[in-house]
């Protein structure tokens, strides 16, 4: 069918995509509205901080250490071509803080958290737990969505900061143990060239990524189809959408930061 009418298929895909974007925007509006109206569920927020933030530390840390280590090797190899091998510490630090730290943490959290949120809320929907919440006078937006979105917005920047540190440490290990760079000079070079804005811009990105990841996870969970297949599809869609949104938001934020 797609082969017979490629323009029609493309048109339908674009319309479906725009409709989904519209629904997500409405969901965003409802989330923001629920955020500023009591009641606030502090216990659920605390639980979400633990699940989204603390439990993501291992995967973010491991990703960061290998990324920093590989980055050091690549920069050294590339820099050596024009006798600039000594730029490894500063490039690793700036690269991790501004770009790789937030993006890698964002993608890891997108995979881990948006899937788990979508699956959990999707299962709650198909087993009528969401309906049960409503009949117990509890707004699912305030009870389920707001705590998760706030928790991700708060914790992903912390994960980014931890990831940055571990990534820079990974580069330090490779630089000093494998590339023969002087340890004291490595640290001095890192400290001299890394600016506060490099770090804060990465943290701002982290907050934006966290917000989007949890929002998308909740949205797909709340709109999950019936049965195991519906929950599976919602989970898959959440991971794909969250990953794409992280990368798109990264580009937009980077553009804005350069323009500022």
């Amino acid at each position: 069918m797609i082969l017979l009418n490629p323009v029609g298929a493309l048109g339908r895909a674009v319309l479906d995509g725009l409709a989904a974007l519209g629904r997500l925007t409405l969901y965003l509006g409802a989330t923001l509205y629920a955020m500023v109206r009591p009641p606030f569920y502090f216990r659920e927020f605390g639980h979400a901080v633990w699940v989204i933030g603390y439990n993501s530390l291992p995967v973010v840390g491991l990703t960061a250490v290998f990324t920093g280590a590989a980055l050091a090797l690549q920069i050294y190899e590339g820099g050596s071509r024009f006798n600039a091998g000594q730029v490894v510490p500063s490039i690793v630090a700036i690269g991790m803080a501004r770009e790789l730290g937030p993006v890698m943490a964002g993608l890891m959290v997108a995979a881990r958290v948006s899937s788990s949120i979508a699956a959990e809320i999707g299962t709650m929907k198909v087993t009528e737990q969401i309906d049960a919440l409503v009949t117990l006078s509890t707004d699912p937006m305030r009870y389920l969505t707001v705590p998760r979105v706030l928790a991700a917005t708060v914790t992903v920047p912390v994960l980014v900061a931890v990831g940055d540190s571990i990534g820079i440490f990974g580069g330090y290990l490779v630089g000093t143990q494998s590339l023969g760079l002087n340890a004291a000079a490595y640290l001095k070079n890192t400290a001299d060239y890394l600016e506060i804005w490099d770090v804060t811009s990465g943290l701002v990105k982290g907050a934006a990524f966290g917000f989007l990841i949890a929002l998308v996870g909740c949205y797909y969970g709340m709109n999950s189809g019936r049965g195991a297949q519906g929950v599976g599809a919602a989970t898959k869609s959440a991971v794909v959408a969250a990953s794409v949104l992280v990368l798109a938001a990264n580009y937009i934020l980077t553009t804005l930061f350069f323009a500022a």
């Binding site: 009528e128 309906d131 009949t135 006078s137």
Partner: peptide, 21 residues
């Protein structure tokens, strides 16, 4: 008023709909 309205009801769902967590 929604909350007061729902407070008048109790419901037993088909599958129980108990909160797993």
């Amino acid at each position: 008023e929604r909350e007061a309205f729902l407070a008048r009801f109790g419901m037993l769902f088909q599958g129980g709909a108990l909160f797993d967590s």
